[in-house]
Structure formats: structure tokens, C-alpha cells
């Protein structure tokens, strides 16, 4: 493939990888605190819808973006209530959250289908955008992409260099030990659930505000599930999440381009590619035996004493 095709493809990979990156990092924070939230798909949909609607109503896309995160965090709070408040089953609650979130967003979003929204457009960064090849791929994007560049570093530093990050990790690894060290396990896990839900919501908001400026039902199209798989692929490390998200973004962008070019391969096969890759990635990461890097107390509720 000639270079003038590859560069736009890679730039598109970064763009379509960005919502997945936000969601993966969000789910990663939640899982690091020991809570498995399979409601990512539902939270992304709610985030996407509320961001779209609020920026449309207020004319302020930044407010919409922020509220996308807040609304998704409110949905995550339901998961927190079930799992942390009542010690409910995390898998069941997460699945319910996905079904509920997707259904609610599609229902409330029906009147908006086809509406042109407002959102973020591409802004070339001065100087950086002029770097050959890299500039065109990384620095001719919208501002939310630039924001997402900083996130993995921030989250990595958060877990390594802050007291709160250390505490959050400890309740995901051994909540009983954390409690005997005097930490508030339930409170810390609430933080993990809400903060994670917020980031997942931002991922959804990116879809409706920057990826396309249009509302369609089923906008997330399984990206939430890909994020869940990517957390495993990334071995719960923010740095690897970047790589995984752009890999998936690349496959998504690639299949769109192939469809647009009109190949003989049926469209449904092409559309299947990212999801087939999800399965392959899960098999590969399980086979390397690194699945053991999951937080030791992931999805384990801490029972109140006696």
C-alpha cells in the first residue's frame, strides 16, 4: 500500500481507537479496585447520548463531554449500589447495566436519530503537526484525542506515585489486608467504580461528539465489550491499553476503507474483523499465561465482618 494511503489510515486508527482507549482505561481503574463492571457498553451508550443531547441543548460541547462522563458515572453508581451496597453478584449486575443502558439510550435517543449535533473538529497542533509522518498521524486530530494522550501516563503515575493509587490497588488485590491496615475498602471501591464509569462515559461522549457529529441508535456497536477484552489484553497496564486500543481502531478504520474501496469481500465479513480480533487477542493473552496478572480480588465482594 502506498504511503499516502497508510498515513490517513493510521490517523483514522488513532481516531477510532480513542473512544476505546477512554473506555479501556476507565474499566481498568474499576477493575484495579477489585470491581468487575461488565456494563461498559451500556455506560458508553448513556455517555454518548447525554453528551450529544446536552451539547446540542446548551451549544457547549465541553459541557456535553463532561456530562457524558457524569451520566455514565451515575449509571455506574447503580452497579456500585448493587455490588458494594448489597454485596450483589458483579457479573449479573454488570450485564444488567449493559442491557439497561443500551436500551435506555436507544429509547431516549430515537427522536434525535439523524439530528446533526455539534462537537469537536480537528485542530492541527502548531509545530508538532509539521513533523513528517507522525505529525499527520498524531497531531492533526481533535482536542479530545490530545487529551487522551495524557491519560495513560496520568493513570500510570496515579497508581505508582500517589497514596490514593496505592490504596486503590491494595483493595483490588487483598481487601482484607487493606481493611486491617485501616483503609476504607468499600469507599475506595466506590471511587474506582465512579471514576472508571466517568472515563467510560467520556469514551461514549467521544463517539457522538467527535467521531461522528450525528446521533444513531446502537452507536457504540460493541466497543464497550472490546474495551472489557482490552483490559485483559493490556494485563491491567495503561501503557499496553494504548497499543491495544489503536490496534482495534486500526482494524475498524481498515475495514471501513476496504468497504469504501469496494472489494469483493462481503461487508459482513469485514465488519466482523474487529470482533474476531477480540477473540484472537483473548486467546493469545490467555495462552501467554499472563491472565494471572488480574487483580487478585477482582469480582470478589468483601463480606462485612462475621
Amino acid at each position: 500500500m502506498p504511503i499516502e494511503l497508510i498515513i490517513p489510515l493510521l490517523a483514522a486508527a488513532v481516531q477510532s481507537g480513542t473512544p476505546i482507549l477512554y473506555a479501556t482505561l476507565g474499566e481498568m481503574i474499576t477493575e484495579k479496585s477489585g470491581v468487575l463492571n461488565l456494563g461498559v457498553e451500556g455506560m458508553m451508550m448513556i455517555g454518548a447520548l447525554s453528551a450529544f443531547w446536552i451539547s446540542l441543548a446548551t451549544g457547549n460541547p465541553w459541557l456535553g463531554f463532561l456530562m457524558g462522563g457524569v451520566c455514565a458515572a451515575m449509571l455506574a453508581a447503580m452497579h456500585g449500589l448493587v455490588c458494594l451496597g448489597f454485596q450483589g453478584n458483579q457479573v449479573v449486575s454488570g450485564l444488567a447495566l449493559t442491557i439497561f443502558g443500551v436500551g435506555l439510550a436507544n429509547y431516549l435517543g430515537t427522536p434525535l436519530v439523524g439530528t446533526q449535533g455539534i462537537g469537536f473538529s480537528k485542530v492541527s497542533l502548531p509545530v508538532l503537526a509539521d513533523i513528517p509522518v507522525l505529525g499527520a498521524i498524531l497531531f492533526h486530530q481533535d482536542v479530545l484525542v490530545y487529551l487522551s494522550f495524557a491519560l495513560p501516563v496520568l493513570i500510570w503515575a496515579f497508581f505508582r506515585y500517589t497514596r490514593l493509587g496505592l490504596h486503590l490497588r491494595s483493595v483490588g488485590e487483598n481487601p482484607v489486608a487493606a481493611a486491617t491496615a485501616g483503609l476504607n475498602v468499600i469507599g475506595l471501591r466506590w471511587l474506582g467504580v465512579l471514576l472508571g464509569g466517568f472515563l467510560v462515559g467520556l469514551g461514549g461522549a467521544y463517539l457522538s461528539l467527535a467521531y461522528i457529529h450525528l446521533w444513531t441508535n446502537g452507536l457504540t456497536a460493541g466497543r464497550g465489550w472490546i474495551a472489557v477484552a482490552l483490559v485483559i489484553f493490556a494485563f491491567w497496564r495503561p501503557g499496553r491499553a494504548v497499543f491495544g486500543a489503536y490496534l482495534f481502531g486500526g482494524v475498524m478504520a481498515f475495514q471501513l476503507r476496504l468497504q469504501a474501496m469496494g472489494t469483493d469481500i462481503p461487508a459482513s465479513i469485514l465488519m466482523m474483523l474487529p470482533y474476531a480480533l477480540t477473540i484472537l487477542v483473548l486467546i493469545a493473552s490467555t495462552m501467554t499465561g499472563r491472565g494471572g496478572e488480574a487483580p487478585a480480588a477482582l469480582a470478589v465482594n468483601m463480606e462485612p465482618e462475621e
Binding site: Y161, T162, R163, L164, L166, H167, R169, S170, E173, N174, V176, A177, A178, T180, A181, G182, L183, P295, A296
Partner: peptide, 22 residues
């Protein structure tokens, strides 16, 4: 009551860290 994935130092200081940054 130890967090196996963490270091000795992190375990000893868990809950006793003096500052936000560690």
C-alpha cells in the same frame, strides 16, 4: 495480611503514607 503483588516497602507503609504523593 499482605498484598502479594506489592513490594515489601509498599506493604509496610500501606495506610501509613504521610503525603498524597509517594
Amino acid at each position: 495480611m499482605l498484598v502479594n503483588r506489592m513490594t515489601v516497602a509498599e506493604n509496610v507503609l500501606l495506610g501509613q503514607e504521610k503525603h498524597f504523593w509517594v
